[in-house]
């Protein structure tokens, strides 16, 4: 159990979604995965599949079109999961915030855990955010485990004989 807890922060698999960005932030995100910065040192893999991902990196402000996709990706990710907003646009809407089609920053739609300000932020800053996200992941994993234990206990209390079934649920 301890090991699983520890490992939660050791292999942050990321998925990157470009909401409505000018592509500046995306280039920096991809730059942080290149050999110069080598994000795989920390176990980072850009999986491109929400079902495998732990960290959702969003660049660009949210508009009425991308909102649905963003929420969908987030819902498909199994917990524990962390959302990182990269760039001024993703944090607050940035330079586009007054546009008629913009809802605002990512936090208008999803619970953002880490903000990376800058237009565009340096790859170092993005890497730093990912490393901080790993700490969050460990924390969230603990919460999840506690919640699951509580749930099992509750089901046990309701039906003492159905212990195995309870664990499954």
């Amino acid at each position: 159990m301890k090991l699983i807890q520890k490992a939660a922060g050791k292999s942050p698999w990321i998925i990157h979604y470009d909401c409505n960005s000018c592509n500046g932030c995306d280039i920096e995100i991809l730059a942080s995965l290149t050999p110069i910065y080598d994000a795989e040192r920390f176990g980072v893999v850009n999986v491109g599949n929400p079902k495998h991902a732990d960290i959702l990196i969003v660049s660009g402000s949210v508009n009425y079109r991308s909102r649905r996709v963003l929420e969908n990706i987030w819902r498909e990710m199994p917990g524990p999961k962390v959302v990182i907003a990269v760039g001024a646009c993703a944090c607050t809407g940035g330079i586009f915030s007054d546009c008629y089609n913009i809802i605002g920053g990512v936090d208008k739609v999803l619970p953002v855990d880490i903000y990376v300000p800058g237009c565009a932020p340096k790859p170092e800053a993005i890497l730093d955010a990912v490393v901080r996200a790993t700490e969050k992941l460990v924390h969230k994993r603990e919460e999840l485990a506690a919640r699951q234990a509580e749930h099992v206990a509750k089901l046990r209390a309701k039906d003492p004989k159905g212990g195995r079934n309870a664990e499954k649920q």
């Binding site: 090991l3 699983i4 807890q5 520890k6 490992a7 939660a8 050791k10 292999s11 050999p35 080598d38 795989e40 040192r41 920390f42 176990g43 079902k51 732990d54 199994p78 917990g79 524990p80 994993r141 999840l144 485990a145």
Partner: peptide, 28 residues
């Protein structure tokens, strides 16, 4: 593979970390 791409690469035990992490994920 990382060395071929002139990177440092993940720790050798990374696959074990990956699997342990996956075991701790929400069951979907």
């Amino acid at each position: 593979t990382a060395r071929f791409q002139s990177r440092i690469g993940p720790p050798v035990l990374q696959p074990i970390y990956d699997v342990l992490k996956l075991l701790g994920k929400e069951r979907v």
